[in-house]
Design a protein around this nucleic acid. Sequence first.
RNA 1: GGGCGGUUAGCUCAGUUGGUAGAGCAACGCAUUUACACUGCGAAGGUCGGGGGUUCGAGCCCUCCACCGCCCACCA
Length: 722
Amino acid sequence: MQEEKKNIPAIPEIFLSPYKPEETEDGIYAMWEKSGYFDPDKLPNHPTEPFTIIMPPPNANGRLHAGHGLDMTLKDIATRFARMRGKRALFLPGADHAGFETQVVYEKKLEKEGRSRFGMDPKQLYDEIYAFTLENKKYMEDDIRRLGTSCDWSREKFTLDPDIVRQVQDTFVKMHKDGLVYRGKRTINWCPKHQTSLSDVETESVEETTPFYTFKYGPFSIGTVRPETKFGDKYVVMHPHDKRYEQYKHGDVLEVEWINGPIMATIIKDEAVDPGFGTGVMTITPWHSQVDFEIATRHTLDMEQIIGWDGKLLPIAGEFASIKIGDARSKIVEKLKAKGLLEHVDENYKNIVKRCYKCAAMIEPQVKDQWFVKMEPLTKLVVNAVERDGHIDILPEYEKKILLHWMKNSIDWNISRQIVWGIRIPAWFKGNDVVASIDSPGEGWEQDPDTFDTWFSSGQWPLVTLGYPSGADFKTYYPTDLMETGADLVFKWVPRMIMFGLYLAKEIPFKTVYFHGMVNDANNKKMSKSKGNVVSPIDMVDKFGADALRMSLVVGNPPGSSTPLSEDKIKGYKHFSNKLWNIARFILSNTVNTSFEKPSLLPSEDEAILKNLDAIVAEVTKDVEEYRLYMAAEKAYHYVWHELADNVLEASKPILSGTDEDAKAARQYTLGVALVTSLKLLHPFMPFVTETIWQNLPGQMRDADMLMTARWPGSTRTTTPG
RNA sequence: GGGCGGUUAGCUCAGUUGGUAGAGCAACGCAUUUACACUGCGAAGGUCGGGGGUUCGAGCCCUCCACCGCCCACCA
């Protein structure tokens, strides 16, 4: 045995033990990064045809989660493929200050320390969150590196970089001039805990069972689920054609006994009332209900605030003033009952309640002066571009329907946020005058204290990261090739980017949108902290290597669908890394000192092996080109393990140990081609193990110093390993 | 209420323009030989949710039904 070991030909020592990703990955990444090849302008051979992916900037307030793992992997596969195909491949990384999200995280931290943002100096709060974010940003960036992401760090952008802020503010000023933003007193979603307004996509509608009360209101019976808002209800509304109430005329006034004594009620006839619901009569609270607000606007009725910004009843509530609305309901019902005004309670009534998507506090509709984006002219641009011109591919295709449906039904977008963590809105007030301008218009003007909704700035991300409007990168790399992001962003982000791209640059910012689904736990259940089934991608990298994680996220995971992530699956691909490692070991140890010259006459068995390999190369290439990455990965995997290793290598053993020197040389050549081609095919999916092997190949097998910049295989008939 | 998916092996899911049903995991049997036990070989496992239709041919296209899931929504 010992004697035989000595006869094993000399191959690099690293192959004598199993593949150990934990010992090589960091070094390989450092080598790539140091080479400068992540920067497309520094690539060898100076390619000209650009290929661009802008990274959806991860929130800089924490570590990456499993979804980010998938996110980075898919984009990195596309980037590495493009780079190997000789494109000027740019993958531009970023970090998101994530306005409201980060502020929520920071407020929790403050709460733990027994502090509160209310009453804090805004500047100090901003600075504290800034420091907190920068610290976390580093961890997030390290995580991106650990996954093998080949992005150009020299171009990294943060959403609060001065040039980004400047351009976002410029856009606002331009939109104001174009009449696309306006200041309006409108119903907004107000979170009383965080004391800020929220856009519709930042709220969650949940069905809940709430008692439905019917009260006596003068001669009428009115229904409500929110008695605590009813103090100011001095309008009673019914449908104009409702025969039951014919005797009451629009504008009639009558005195009714109500919560805190008699009030004067005015009859309003409006078609918004459904005569078939309840008694067909309702009172309205315009300040705290969208529907009521619209009715009141139609008839120019008074509106009065009942609930304060802090979620407590205002003085209009009389004896109930300063009580939190959550506690007020039962007390008010009791009083109305005592006054004999409670007619009926339906305990099983189901209605939709809106809650803050971060803290689940009940959203209080409030009327507030806010900045709104006038959506209709902009969504029209998007619908035209997406529907008619078809200059955009959306994967999976059905997401296009969802996107268009949303664009066709969107309502004006509230972009004001009452938080400090974000880009300040460049608007100035003096008395009743309003000016949109980056700099102060002069003496006595005060800037709007509000900041932009985070999607207002990230909606311009593909533009601003490339230096719109005049940057050199913008000219070279815009529009980008691929926007790959989570399917949950089909509303929040993607349509807004298209909107801004069309509005500002007159071009859709990307040619293809690829939506990935959720990464779930092994049982395909949503990961959540409370369920304790969260899998950290970095833990998996530590345990099985980045390549194994990447493969397990990609294989069998088509666009749009959710994928289960299990340790078993990742372990399986770690085994595959090792399999590839041993394939290299076997081929190298059987080809020591061979020149890899193509023999003048190739035996038919070798021809067949190469022909088969060509077919796989063609299929994988086509699949990646058409973004069927899940299939490309599986095919490459299947070929390498179950064809190359199981069949080709096994069949080669007798030839390699035989006495027919011509057949042996031919097979050595063929195996060399097969190894090099396999490494290239797998590189975009498994960059670390393939590059590690590449670095240990003899020079005559390599066509580039780094596999990362090697040529993507075409037909093996024209390829030699050397 | 509106929109969008899904239903294929025990489990998790692929299946590109319609052309002999696939993978991984699990389970079963066998095997230590020029790489690899983080292995190899083999066998087993499916009336593709149900009905109807188009077609020479349907997992795939059309239609109806059932069940599961996701998203959106201002009936008080």
